[in-house]
């Protein structure tokens, strides 16, 4: 059989199911989101299926709002930076620690770590909200007992910084197991000889980490960082379900929550779609930069 033609065709045959599924279920709907974003679209238009094009009005309206630049964008980016760094750093530390454990203990500990991932995000969020409840939460009782604050006198959900602090704790807690387990898997493949050589060279633990572990595991870090970035930029439930996060406290919106509230709570589907498109473009930009810096040309 024409093996050369087969050789050029085969990758496309292999890719076909994936591409078909993604075209039908992601690309096409995404196209509709873009199409929606060019319209002034409310429940009435949804019901009648009519169109109502307004050009780039929605984008202009979003991009010219000081609210976007002073609140939503800093929230989105700042929160993502903190949670990505937090998730990757904590995950890596945990992986390094797990690698030092005897096998049975490592098995036990990594199982426990995975439980943090298994708890549904909704439930996890409610638990953190309970813990930080201003009147009766564990944290206010603990701090009150230590005399740091008067028990019940501080409501952390009101202030932007503390609100996002709690949300970050929640997101990092839910996200670090993925990083820890992936990095651990990588760590276990690093050839012992590399470490032995480093020890002979007189490298301490810190230097061994940076000169052996990091270079070898660089592709792993690249992947977990990219994926964490994508996920953390889009964080929705963990913000939306916190006190004030569903709309009452406008200082704590991120792009995802803002888009959702414009669409479903206020019936402005066009505007919501425009925000979603901007979020996608932002992520795309960041990812392209990542890919350029993290991967050498041929690695990709």
């Amino acid at each position: 059989m024409g093996s050369h033609r087969m050789r050029t065709l085969r990758p496309w045959l292999l890719l076909a199911p994936t591409l078909a599924l993604m075209a039908v279920l992601l690309a096409w709907p995404l196209g509709r989101v873009v199409w929606l974003s060019l319209q002034n679209y409310g429940l009435r238009e949804l019901n009648r299926g009519t169109t109502n094009f307004v050009g780039f009005d929605n984008y202009v309206s979003v991009l010219t709002q000081p609210y976007l630049w002073t609140i939503v964008l800093p929230n989105t980016i700042g929160f993502a930076v903190v949670t990505v760094v937090g998730t990757v750093a904590l995950g890596t530390l945990v992986a390094l620690f797990l690698a030092t454990l005897p096998v049975a203990w490592r098995y036990l500990a990594s199982s426990a770590v995975m439980v943090a991932w298994a708890v549904p995000a909704i439930t996890g969020t409610y638990v953190w909200v309970f813990l930080f409840d201003a009147a009766d939460g564990l944290v206010t009782h603990a701090l009150g007992g230590l005399g740091v604050i008067e028990t019940g006198s501080v409501n952390w959900f009101l202030e932007r910084w503390s609100f996002f602090g709690i949300a970050a704790l929640n997101v990092v807690h839910h996200g670090f197991p993925f990083v820890a387990v992936t990095v651990l898997a990588g760590l276990l493949t690093v050839p012992t000889e590399l470490y032995e050589a480093a020890v002979i060279d007189g490298a301490g633990a810190w230097r061994r980490f940076w000169s052996v572990t990091v270079p070898v595991l660089k592709p792993i870090f690249a992947v977990v960082t990219i994926l964490s970035t994508i996920w953390d930029f889009k964080v929705f439930a963990q913000i939306f379900l916190m006190p004030g996060g569903s709309g009452t406290n406008r200082e704590v919106f991120n792009l995802g929550v803002w888009s959702y509230i414009q669409s479903f709570a206020q019936g402005r589907y066009g505007l919501g779609a425009a925000i979603a498109v901007l979020l996608t473009l932002l992520l795309l930009g960041i990812t392209v930069v990542y890919l350029r810096t993290l991967f050498v040309e041929e690695d990709l």
Binding site: R32, L36, A273, A276
Partner: peptide, 22 residues
């Protein structure tokens, strides 16, 4: 490869209506 990555970037909440129609 990049396109496959991009596919993960769209906020799912925004896809609810288009995907429902699809």
């Amino acid at each position: 490869l990049v396109m496959i990555l991009v596919a993960q970037m769209v906020p799912l909440e925004a896809l609810v209506i288009p995907l429902f129609l699809q």
